[in-house]
Simulated scan of single mutants.
Amino acid sequence: MTDFWLRIFLIRHGHVAYFDEDNKPVNPKYAQLSPQGIEQIGLLADNLKDTAFDRVYSSTMPRSIQTAEILTQHHSSEQVSTVDAIREIKSGRLRDLTEDNSETELKEAYLLQTNQLEHFLQGEKWQDFSHRVLDWFEKTILSASKQQNILISSHDAVNRVIINWMYNHPLADIYTQEQDYGCLNILDIYVKNNQILHKRIKLQNFTTYNPLKKGLFNSAMDDVYNMYVDNNGFKE
């Protein structure tokens, strides 16, 4: 009989530079951390410098890899494993949105059940996205054979799906599970005889750089909408 608790440090990458020095949009697939994002993750890394990680994962996207590398800078022996299954959900072409419907579609993109949305912004299917994330997450948990600290450097929608799974609400509306840039979630999962028996959330959406969320009123999709408006010259 084998039983143990796993502690998951689930982190969203830091602030991202979605526009280059000439104010031209960068493909989100290749976007990297901005100086602000690097500072955010650096502060979190200082908080975690005394925490040793048995396994470290990031998605295959540059901003997630950068985040994991900064977080492990105090422990050179910790190797980052990149995983495509936890890359961010893929949207359709935002240029196909119209001025009339862009605000609703962007700001309410996470209300998938309320708005009966099969796809995320006309892109990846929510069902497919949830399966790829949670299949990998559960397999990773069940591959452990003893108590471990596991660091996962991931993305907004990925984290929300995992947190909903912790609440036993898979693929529910994920609008309320806010994930600010550079936030930390601590999840404890109890495994016994290769089965997941208990789940506890010890910390959620904690931002070292702004613990009381002063001025952080926008949701992640509000930020996307504002960038979209600025890039397309629309007036709010």
Rank of each mutant, 00 (worst) to 15 (best):
Ser91Arg: 10
Leu117Ser: 04
Leu33Tyr: 01
Thr104Asp: 15
Ser91Phe: 01
Ile70Thr: 05
Ile86Trp: 06
Thr98Ser: 15
Ala85Asn: 13
Asp96Glu: 14
Asp22Glu: 13
Phe53Ile: 10
Thr114Trp: 06
Asp22Pro: 01
Ile65Trp: 04
Lys107Leu: 07
Gln66Arg: 09
Tyr18Ala: 05
Ile11Glu: 08
Gly42Leu: 05
Ile70Cys: 07
Gln32Leu: 00
His119Phe: 07
Gly123Leu: 04
Met61Pro: 02
Thr51Gln: 14
Glu88Arg: 03
Asn23Tyr: 10
Ser59Met: 09
Glu99Tyr: 03
Arg93Met: 03
Leu44Asp: 00
Ile38Thr: 10
Ile89Gln: 05
Asp96Trp: 05
Phe120Asn: 07
Thr104Tyr: 07
Gln73Met: 12
Ser77Glu: 14
Arg87Trp: 00
Leu48Asp: 05
Arg55Leu: 13
Ile70Tyr: 11
Asp50Phe: 12
Glu21Leu: 11
Gln36Asn: 01
Ser76Asp: 14
His15Leu: 04
Lys107Ile: 13
Arg63Met: 04
Gly92Ile: 04
Gly42Lys: 13
Leu97Gly: 06
Lys90Glu: 15
Arg63Cys: 09
Tyr57Pro: 08
Ala85Val: 00
Ala52Glu: 13
Ala68Asp: 08
Gly92Lys: 02
Lys125Trp: 01
Gln36Lys: 15
Ser58Leu: 11
Thr104Asn: 12
Pro28Met: 01
Pro35Met: 08
Ser59Asp: 09
Glu21His: 12
Val16Ile: 15
Val83Ala: 05
Gln116Lys: 14
Ser34Asn: 08
Ile41Met: 12
Gln122Arg: 12
His75Arg: 15
Ser34Ala: 09
His13Trp: 05
Ser58Val: 05
Gln113Asn: 15
Glu69Leu: 15
Pro25His: 01
Leu97Arg: 05
Ala45Gln: 12
Gly37Cys: 02
Ile38Cys: 02
Ile70Gly: 08
Ala31Arg: 00
Val56Pro: 06
Leu33Ser: 02
Thr72Leu: 08
Ala85Phe: 02
Glu21Phe: 08
Asp96His: 07
Ser64Leu: 04
Ala68Met: 07
Lys107Thr: 15
Leu117Asp: 01
Phe120Cys: 09
Ser77Thr: 13
Ala17His: 04
Val16Asp: 02
Asn23Val: 00
Ser91Asp: 07
Thr51Met: 14
Gln122Trp: 00
Thr72Tyr: 12
Glu21Thr: 09
Gly123Ile: 02
Gly123Gln: 04
Gln113Ala: 03
Ser59Val: 10
Gln36Trp: 03
Thr72Cys: 11
Trp126Asp: 01
Asp20His: 01
Lys29Arg: 10
Leu48His: 03
Ser77Val: 06
Asn27Asp: 15
Tyr110Arg: 08
Ser81Asp: 08
Lys125Met: 11
His75Gln: 14
Asn101Ala: 06
Val80Trp: 07
Ile38Ala: 02
Glu105Pro: 00
Glu88Cys: 03
Gln66Pro: 10
Pro62Arg: 04
His74Gly: 01
His75Gly: 03
Asp50Met: 05
Gln73Arg: 15
Pro62Asp: 11
Tyr30Lys: 07
Thr60His: 04
Lys49Ile: 10
Val83Leu: 14
Ser77Arg: 08
Phe120His: 13
Thr51His: 00
Leu106Cys: 04
Ile86Leu: 08
Glu88Val: 02
Leu106Arg: 06
Ser81Cys: 06
Gly14Leu: 05
Phe129Thr: 09
Glu39Phe: 11
Thr60Ile: 15
Ala17Gly: 12
Asp46Lys: 14
Ser34Tyr: 03
Asp54His: 11
Arg63Asn: 10
Gly42Ile: 09
Ile38Met: 12
